[in-house]
Design a protein around this nucleic acid. Sequence first.
DNA 1: ATTTATGTTTACAG
DNA 2: CCTGTAAACATAAA
Length: 286
Amino acid sequence: MPELPEVQTIVDDLHKVLKKKRILSIRVTKPRLLHNPLTFLRQHLVGATIRSVRRRAKLLLFDLSSGYTLIIHLKMTGQLIWRSHLGKLSGGGHPIVGVASVPNRYTHITIDLSGGSRLYFNDVRQFGYFKLLPTSALVQHFSSYGPEPLSVDFSLSGLRAELQRRRRSTIKAALLNQQVVAGIGNIYADESLFVAGLSPSRRVGRLTQVQAAKLYRAIRQVLKRAVHSRGTSFSNYVDGLGRTGTYWPRRLVYGRAGSPCRRCGRTIKRTVVAGRGTNFCPHCQK
DNA sequence: ATTTATGTTTACAG
DNA sequence: CCTGTAAACATAAA
């Protein structure tokens, strides 16, 4: 559920509190969520120090002193909550209705850290996962992912090239395709398309050069603003303290079907494109 | 009480 | 190669 801005917010918050912490033990009640044997995980995790917490696409990366990197995907309903020995909270993820404390019935993995703090992985639908890889294997592991949209790796010419390969696809499907650009999900796909003035169901091949450039700029602008707002949320993200991001009240179309368009005042419509609920303004987006 | 929808990704069919 | 659909699982809303 969390997309790039939400994952970035969680990563930034967790990096502050987890950096230099040593992993003392790990407990798993749902082995299905691990992509490695538990013994292998323990072997390279326990005793290692967390060097840094980073993000690639929608995944969190924990670089360890053991030469391994722990990859965590929150998928739709995962959350990572850190709690200090005094009860201070950090991290975040999908909010769980009526459940504010950790651990709880959705806590599937617990990591004990030096200093008496703990990191809890909670996931209602259990789609999320933990995967441990040698740090040296990361480049290969992410070779099928497109560029980070907020880095210099993401260029207009590169986007054009990727779009060219998928000219029969709808623009929305292309934005959701992680091979085109990494980190965009349903919310920011809809928001970017509104800012670019493009209909979600439009075929990629029918984009003009000017429109592709508008889309490129829209993606970067929308994601930058969302990161600065600590994500969107309300229904898709809260931080460790239960606070939502502030992008939600600023959103332009996502979840606003039936409400007036902020630009033209006409009604925002909802359809299904690329198999996903899609919100757009038929008047402002062509 | 059923049915429908949910922010993700992958496997599979066409 | 490309695209659309279903499915992994659980819950809340309709």
